[in-house]
Amino acid sequence: MPRYRVQFSKEGPARFLSHLDLVRTTERALRRARLPLAFSQGFNPHPRFSFAAPLPVGVAGEQEYLDIELEKNISPKEIISRLNMVFPEGIRVKEARPVSDRAPSLMATLKKARYEVEMELSGPLTNSALQGCLDSFLALSAVEAATKKKDRQKTKDIRPGIYRLQGKVEQKKVVLEMELQAGSSGNVRPEEVCRGLLEKCGLPVLLQTCRIKRTGLFFEKSSDSRESGRTATEE
């Protein structure tokens, strides 16, 4: 069955949708778009589509990915324009292209995610002090972060999952850019990095003012480069 990889953004009011909300909203938008949807089998059939990675509530996404299965071929241009007529405010489709129906799922090949994080400062900070702080953080051999699994407190080391960390001071805010491990194992959340920066290196930020945007997803390179997200080839 024809499968299409769709790149979209989730911003504005839509950033407050949970992943489940997004799934529901997408199913209804696909139905409104009157695309020849492929349905799952069974008593309660659903249109077949899947996302690369869930976005937490409140986190905006600039370049998110979604695979949609159709019963027949439709031009990518047509898919983009039909979807943009039916998605609610804040969800915009930017790209669509066919992928092989044997291509591995988005979720399976996801490696990294890039985030932009804005936080208000709790005290004075210069760009060089920030740089010093980031350098000393990256120099740590391990960074413990608390996790909660079935009500049991555990810790994990997030340091191996931090691939890049940069930042600058803008007026009373600090803006960080980070690339973190994403996917089913070793996933690192940007809040964990922010907490680490505050606790380990004394970065003067107000964690509760943290505003996160996911700006890119990176997938494992495969033999057929068409089968992964565009950004995959960057690193």
Partner: peptide, 26 residues
């Protein structure tokens, strides 16, 4: 979105209750 409201929405449970922007909203 109003930035003051947007900031608050990041801190409450189920912020979609207050975000608006639904399909067919006028």
């Amino acid at each position: 979105m109003n930035p003051k409201i947007e900031r608050v929405l990041s801190r409450v449970q189920k912020p979609a209750r207050y975000a608006g922007g639904e399909w067919n909203a006028v």
